[in-house]
Design a protein around this nucleic acid. Structure first.
Lengths: 203, 203
DNA sequence: AAATTTACTGAACAGTGTTCAGTAAATCAG
DNA sequence: CTGATTTACTGAACACTGTTCAGTAAATTT
């Protein structure tokens, strides 16, 4: 009975169609300014239809959020080639910041916006979990290689992630108004390099 | 002609009345769930009245945001008594995190939400500027005392602020789902202590 | 061919931020 | 004190928002 399979496939195609349209609109107009009606218009369906494929707007956002992680993980792949674990860590941080600056809307959805996380009960956040696992792995390598002293991995990884995340969060939410606009990138860079140096010397 | 003075005073009182009501509602119900109409109801005025005192919702939010900074600065005062500059820095970080955890809505407004910063043209962000100045001062003291090596102050202060801010941003936006809920505070604390230790050794 | 399931929609509900003509009171000028 | 003007406020509306639900037309099953 291939008919139910086809139905299911069509259903999945429709979901993807919605997500694609939503992503396109979000990336061009920003999240705040895109409504369910806009998305419905884009795919030439009624707004009510969207609710046949997603429970509510948050679920739709969460689906996009997963796409964001897929993209980020893809961009992290080249790092696997690096041999020096510390260099790998540093480049990972740089990639994180670069991703945030180049994909502000996606990054927002993944790490800053409240909306997509509102419904999540407990440990459904597989994507975040995996990404953090990757970081812990690299940190472990640094410790094994003697670049860092032995410390609790979770806390160490958390410390590094938080630090890197801080830059992006403050930058994306426009909290660096105390610097001249043109100085911001260079200060961010200097600051990041200083952090790396400090880690290498002090951790 | 004391009449214009009285008018001005009454106007300021009205502004404060609105802000007080708004803050009360925001802190009890969260920012997302409070509308201009709610605030108007609370003070028993028409919604349109609020627009006679604030250009739009963002301006109202920005006014509250300033109150948040006032409260934060007040909580930072006891730190002035500390003599050891490094201890001062550490306690400043701890106070920042504590403020975020104990006043999540205010902190959100001050450092995470986009809304209040949307209209701000360039360097209107006096509050943030002052707070950052305070941090730079302490960092300078640490360098002078020989706890840190000499580095560019702005970048160093930025590095420290970002790092501390990262914890709070990830925590408040519920991105620590990879840890068991009960572990979060202890990991945050371990991680913060590790950061301080790393700074002392490596900076 | 008839009955049933599926996919979709128009219209509505209750809410949002914001504007604006209109009103009543306070202030000013003569 | 009276009439004109300014001030403070409001009700109603506009153009949105997310979401629901009865109703419809097509696809599928019987």
């Amino acid at each position: 009975m291939g008919i139910t399979e086809r139905k299911e496939r069509e259903r999945e195609e429709m979901r993807q169609l919605i997500l694609e349209a939503a992503l396109k609109l979000f990336l061009t107009n920003g999240f705040e300014k895109v409504s369910i009606r806009n998305i419905a218009d884009e795919i030439e369906y009624s707004p009510a239809t969207i609710y046949l494929y997603f429970k509510d707007k948050n679920e739709l956002l969460f689906a996009l959020h997963q796409r964001g992680f897929a993209k980020m993980v893809a961009e992290f792949q080249p790092l696997r080639l690096l041999n020096d674990p510390f260099e790998k860590l540093v480049e990972m941080g740089r990639a994180y910041i670069r991703f945030a600056v180049e994909n502000p809307e996606l990054f927002d959805l993944m790490f800053i916006m409240t909306a997509p996380m509102d419904k999540l009960d407990k440990e459904d956040w597989v994507e975040g979990d995996q990404a953090f696992g990757l970081l812990m792995q690299v940190v472990q390598e640094c410790m094994d290689a003697g670049v860092f002293q032995q410390h609790d991995i979770q806390s160490t990884a958390m410390m590094i992630w938080s630090s890197i995340h801080g830059y992006t969060a403050l930058f994306l939410r426009k909290r660096l108004g105390m610097f001249a606009e043109c100085d911001v990138p260079v200060i961010m860079d200097d600051s990041f390099n200083l952090f790396c140096e400090t880690l290498r010397k002090g951790l």
